[in-house]
Design a protein around this nucleic acid. Sequence first.
RNA 1: GCGCCCGUAGCUCAGCUGGAUAGAGCGUCGGCCUCCGAAGCCGAAGGUCGCAGGUUCGAAUCCUGCCGGGCGCACCA
Length: 586
Amino acid sequence: MKEEISQLLEQALKGLVEEGVLPEETRGTAIQVERARDRKHGDFAANLAMMLAKPARRNPRELAAAIVEALPASDLVRKVEIAGPGFINFFLSPQAWHAVVEEVFERGTRFGHSDIGRDEKIHLEFVSANPTGPLHVGHGRGAAYGSTVGNLLEAIGHPVHREYYVNDAGRQMDILATSVWLRYLELGGAELRFPSNGYRGDYIIDIARQLREEHGEAFQQPVESVFHGLPEDAPDGDKEAHIDGLIGRARHLLGEEAFQTVFLTALEDILADIREDLSAFGTEFDEWFSERSLTSGGMVDHALEELEKSGDVYEQDGAKWFAAEKYGDEKDRVVVRDNGQATYFASDIAYHLNKRERGHDRLIDILGADHHGYIARLKAGLEGMGQPGDSLEVRLVQFAHLYRGKEKLQMSTRSGSFVTLRELREEVGRDAARFFYVMRSNEQHLDFDLELAKSQSSDNPVYYVQYAHARICSVFQQAEDKGFQYSRDTGLANLDQLDEDHEDQLMVTLSRFPEVVEAAARNRAPHQLTQYLRDLANDLHTYYNAHTFLVLEEEIRNARLCLVEATRQVLANGLALIGVSAPESM
RNA sequence: GCGCCCGUAGCUCAGCUGGAUAGAGCGUCGGCCUCCGAAGCCGAAGGUCGCAGGUUCGAAUCCUGCCGGGCGCACCA
């Protein structure tokens, strides 16, 4: 609809250039059409005349008059006015709004979708939490935000590949395996002081128990041999040295094969739990990409080769460095340590190179806000490997702070005293959780009040929107109970009988949906969609309270039902995009 | 110290890539159910858009400086 207005203006512009009224260089001026905020200003407004005033050396109002004069006729437009400093205001005809209702039915669940993004393949990485324990509420925000952005991008036609990067390599994983093994020893009757830096959650004990069921006493070792001669743990000693010593001891006493068994059991258990959790949260991935596969598949070496080609890799102090500073990073980065091991930075850029080599035009990473330091170095790395730095787009998700009423809840994976995503889901429900997570801009800190999200009444916005949907369903149920036969065709044929302000308003809001979806997708801003859904629900509730739908006159009744049926469709489409259900009754 | 994010109504936040008189929810106050679901609707009060400059027809929005809050600055993962 916006598009159509824009085209009319384009033709007018073209005409004026050809007539010589406007200089040649204004031909390519980008036409901006926006929704008028106040309906007194019509339905759409264009600032074209103001933008052209300078190059054309004419005053904007005069120019606006010339543009209006040059506009081709259209039956969508009822009236055009010039207002203020030179705005061109368009008033649309009723037929224009009726066409929207028809379009909703024609497109059905795909109303609001488009294909404008079809030429850009997008790789979307999100959540990617270390598989060292259950997901907590911070990951939940990334999951809700990421999956909604994915839905929005798909809705505007982008091919989207959703991926979870599994950090299944490195020291944290070794600490995990060691923690499991220590719990295993405890289950075997050993008494030991659990390392302060180990993973303490109950899930560790569950995994240890499973290990015992599957492997019996195979991994049992005397406690003395495990702890003997290790550096002291905190508070008197160095907890890092202590845990590293324990890892070494575990590897040594168990042997590499048995250690791997413990390691893999822990990894697979936790990963399975995460998959199940995310799936139940309505978040699906196309691929779970293993960090270890980067090394084993030679991708890290390949990336290092590509990087070498830049000529910006040098050796110093026995390590290989990448001159990242030349590419806008704040300092140079080590890629291979003096012990010959590739750094985390090396595997990170190898991963991103791999994403590019898989054919994705744009890489979107959704990261926790504490990772913002990675952006510059990742872009630098990509450029060093001959890839465009701006093919990577990082979206940060700020922290979510959980409150139970006034009480702020503490979170820490290590201590085991966190609130998990699963607990949150069980407590407030998937719909409320998802809606709350994306309701605010991702760049904004989120105060998530459990009591509020749980409250089945009043101030919970997700219920407000869902209620609008349920209410419409209920109206159709009532119609049936009263013996009114609903005919959509009769309704469509009589839309011109709908002349109430509320009906007008509702149709206008329905027509905004495709624009909202596009803007929310382009801006990676799901909260713009939740905002819209509240507007739409409000229009429906207002209309409902002001007018009875199930009136005796058949034409008006069917026309009204037709309008609310379209509304129901749009509510459902919008809720589907954020992964929230559209209930028929509540 | 350097870098990134955020300062908008009492509270929580929008403000659509610079537009017309800055909006919504909650909270407060006052109304609306013999009538399709009151999980709803209508109305009122509430603002120096952190502060100061700058850019232009026009700034909450863009630029600079300052103030305040959060986060990050590893041969850790």
